[in-house]
Amino acid sequence: MGIMIYTRKMIALVMACIGVMQLCAQQKLNLQFVNMVGESKLNIGDSYKTSFDEPFTVRRFKYYISNIQLQDDHQQWHKVSSECFLVDAEDPASQAITVNHGLKNIKSIKFLLGVDSIKNVSGVQTGTLDPARGMFWTWNSGYIVAKLEGKSSVSKALGRYMTYDVGGYKPGENASRWIVLPLTPATKNKPLQAISIKADVLAWFKGENKILIAENAVCHEPGILAMKLADNYSHMFSILQKQ
């Protein structure tokens, strides 16, 4: 009996030591989202042109980032955050996200651009999911995944507005997209401390679908146009820098 008790204590001690080692191995990774228009940094109110030579200005640019995961050398994914972050071009602090992880090497980063379907039907929420943030429609439509609003001289909407509030979570209307960004080359034997991720506004207008402001200046509900925009903005992210 004494030997069994001693063995159990030893096992508990070993497990405790492993836990301490894992805790000590935890390190911070800073993700900095850099909003850009092509090769230029996005500035609210500045004038830009799409790839189709349509002029526009931006007054709002927001998007949700959630379910952040990191991939190790063995192709295994590790979720490092289940939180929903709202990146807002008008709020510099929102563009920096810090996560903790215990990986020696990181091969890729993955996250959901948007809000998972469960949160869309979970009632009134707080923090970044508070409806007061201006990213929630109705109980039917749920959260806006990404918002791009401004003006364009070619827009036929009232006031020359350009407003793309893209959302939807139901089958066939899901505007959320998984984003996978490989870190090439993979970090080796050197703790990765920060990654700058470019978010290019121009991707909204080109890619899988050609979006002309003159023809489609407004999107305020789930549907065909929202899905086309979602397929386009799924390509707006790229690794700008890592250190």
Rank of each mutant, 00 (worst) to 15 (best):
K242Y: 15
C24K: 13
I11E: 11
N30R: 09
N216Q: 08
Q193C: 08
T163K: 15
I109F: 00
M227C: 05
P191R: 14
S66T: 04
K151P: 05
P182E: 10
M1Q: 09
S40M: 12
G38A: 11
E54I: 00
L112Y: 08
I68W: 01
G19R: 05
M10Q: 10
K206C: 12
S47Y: 00
H78M: 05
A25T: 14
K110C: 09
I179L: 06
I118R: 15
S176R: 02
D46P: 04
F237E: 00
D165I: 01
C84M: 10
L202N: 14
G223Y: 02
S51K: 00
L23T: 12
V218P: 01
N43D: 12
N140L: 15
Q32I: 13
A203D: 07
S176E: 07
H74A: 08
T128A: 13
N30I: 13
I18M: 14
L202T: 14
K198W: 03
A203W: 01
I97V: 10
A93N: 10
S176H: 06
S51M: 01
E215K: 15
R160V: 09
Q27D: 13
Q32S: 07
D165P: 02
G168T: 00
L183F: 02
Q241N: 12
L148E: 03
T138W: 03
I18K: 06
R60A: 14
L112N: 07
N232P: 05
Y161M: 10
E90G: 15
Y48V: 02
V180G: 09
E221V: 13
I11A: 10
L192V: 06
I179C: 04
G45N: 09
Y63C: 05
M15D: 12
W137D: 07
L192E: 05
D73A: 12
A214D: 04
N232G: 02
P185A: 05
F136R: 10
L129A: 09
F56R: 04
M236P: 03
G127N: 15
S234H: 10
L103D: 08
K170R: 09
Q69I: 01
H74K: 14
T57N: 06
L31P: 00
K210L: 13
I197M: 02
S66C: 10
D91H: 11
Y169T: 03
V14H: 07
K28I: 11
N67L: 08
S152D: 04
K147G: 00
D88L: 07
S155A: 08
D72G: 14
Y6F: 09
N140A: 13
E208A: 14
D73T: 11
V154I: 06
G19V: 02
V14Q: 06
F61C: 15
Q71W: 00
I224K: 11
K188Y: 04
V180E: 15
S176M: 03
A93K: 11
I213R: 01
N174H: 08
L192Y: 02
